[in-house]
């Protein structure tokens, strides 16, 4: 029941936001060119989908984000486990995170170009940077809050180190890991879009950031918002469907949330 009411509330909220947008657009407080109405955004979206390039660009974006996230998250877990082994390494990792985490990936773009050239690899490097540090932060926190008794029970019944990590540490730290994933997911999108708006490749390799950059240059605001809409829609689906399912089937089922 509660869940249903929450969902209804959310829908009402979104409809209200859209209504405010529409009223503002039709009141012409702002130049129509820069603040398009919902129907012109929708028709731009349909037009772009029919043309098809935006589908490929969305696919490219998601692929780059997944690639960056998988590498970044695996690295983060390895580093975090490593940091649990010794206090000194833990110290180094925490220092590194506090130095690197606030750095926007875009500021590293000159280095990325130097090391990886001007293409896909540089963008993936920046995505990894934006995913890695929040993930380490959350994973380490998750590991630290595991009750000592769990680990002791594990070693008492004779589990190997690797089993303790996969069967005790990771499941116990799952709520924090999921938070890290969620933060990483949204940061990865920001990194991708801004990197592509600074140096974008046209043609088959390009993603949604380039699409938005291009539409912006053409002063095609409905087109820009159509691109933003796709990003919002993907984000919304992943947040409310994918993460929900994972949470339902793990931490909620195991009674780890309140």
């Amino acid at each position: 029941m509660v869940n249903k009411r929450l969902k209804l509330n959310r829908t009402i909220f979104i409809v209200m936001l859209l209504a405010i947008w529409e009223i503002t657009a039709h009141s012409h407080i702002f130049p129509e060119l820069l603040f398009p109405s919902l129907e012109s955004i929708l028709s731009a979206l349909i037009h772009e989908l029919e043309k098809g390039t935006i589908v490929l660009q969305t696919y490219n974006s998601i692929e780059m984000i997944l690639e960056g996230m998988i590498i970044g998250d695996i690295l983060a877990i390895i580093i975090s486990v490593w940091a649990m082994i010794s206090r000194r390494i833990n110290e180094y990792v925490t220092t590194l995170v506090s130095i690197m985490d606030p750095l926007p990936g875009i500021a590293l773009l000159p280095l990325a170009i130097l090391w990886f050239g001007t293409g896909r690899n540089s963008i993936i490097f920046i995505i990894i940077h934006s995913v890695l540090w929040p993930m380490i932060l959350n994973t380490v926190t998750g590991f630290k809050t595991i009750p000592k008794i769990y680990l002791e029970v594990g070693s008492n019944i004779g589990l190997k180190k690797i089993k303790i990590i996969t069967n005790i540490m990771i499941p116990s730290a799952l709520p924090s890991l999921l938070t890290g994933l969620q933060v990483g997911w949204s940061r990865a999108w920001r990194a991708l879009i801004s990197a592509e708006m600074i140096f974008g490749a046209t043609g088959k390799e390009s993603g949604l950031g380039w699409y938005i950059f291009e539409k912006r240059f053409m002063l095609d605001m409905p087109g820009v918002f159509a691109g933003l809409f796709i990003i919002v829609a993907i984000g919304f689906i992943v947040e409310t469907v994918l993460f929900e399912i994972i949470e339902e089937s793990t931490i909620k089922k195991w009674g780890m949330t309140n």
């Binding site: 000159p110 170009i113 001007t118 600074i198 140096f199 974008g200 490749a201 046209t202 043609g203 088959k204 380039w210 950059f213």
Partner: peptide, 10 residues
């Protein structure tokens, strides 16, 4: 396809 968009100094 050959275009790479960048500012002039970059």
């Amino acid at each position: 396809d050959k275009i790479l968009s960048m500012s002039h100094p970059d």
